[in-house]
């Protein structure tokens, strides 16, 4: 009994836990991101248009069976795949296992908030808000495709999904107007090459 207790305490001190990361890549991965990967849970609205890169899963065992470790594992893998965010994240917690699943995405555009006064000063007409679920970028070239017997990839356009933009306070004017999408030098269009399963 004492030996078992000693073994258990030794294992807990040495950090007896590990995390497995699994992925299904749906598009060609992008260059690694240096900035922090944002995480959105399944019931959260994603504030920007995006396109999916991969379906990610992290499974934590032992001392790694907690939301912090599996979330960190997802973030690291998403960053290495060049993703900006993980959307539709779901974490299921067991007694000695934790599972996290999310969709690793890359931003397809950037929302820029311009006040009416600022727009008038610059001679810009305020733009109407973008409706939800519309394509706001040129369609990418190829989607991830996977098949049964044939399993041959074929170019298929996938426009990014536009989500409703959040209301953000404008530092340059008291009356914010609906945000207008503008080009993001950092967030390019989806890649031309997809990956078959």
């Amino acid at each position: 009994m004492i030996a078992r207790l000693a073994l258990a305490s030794l294992l807990s001190l040495s950090g007896c836990g590990y995390t497995d990361v699994h992925e299904v890549v749906l598009r060609q991965p992008q260059p690694r991101r240096t900035r922090q990967v944002e995480i959105y849970f399944a019931n959260q609205t994603v504030p920007r248009p995006f396109y999916e890169i991969a379906l990610l899963q992290a499974v934590g065992h032992g001392t790694d069976a907690d939301a912090e470790d599996v979330g960190e594992a997802l973030s690291q893998r998403a960053a290495s795949l060049g993703c900006d965010a993980i959307v539709r994240t779901r974490i299921d917690q067991g007694y000695s296992i934790a599972n996290a699943v999310g969709v690793c995405v890359r931003w397809a555009g950037r929302v820029k908030v311009v006040s009416q006064e600022g727009a008038a000063r610059r001679g810009i007409a305020p733009a109407a808000p973008a409706p939800a679920h519309v394509a706001s970028q040129p369609p990418p070239a190829q989607a991830a495709e996977s098949g049964g017997a044939a399993a041959a990839s074929r170019p298929t356009p996938i426009p990014p999904v536009a989500q409703p933009e959040p209301a953000q306070p404008d530092p340059s004017g008291p009356t914010p107007i609906p945000p207008a999408p503008s080009a993001d030098p950092d967030a390019g269009p989806p890649p031309d090459e997809g990956t078959s399963l």
Partner: peptide, 9 residues
């Protein structure tokens, strides 16, 4: 029998 697109987002 052809390729199947996967949509997860």
């Amino acid at each position: 029998a052809g390729p199947v697109r996967v949509v997860t987002s």
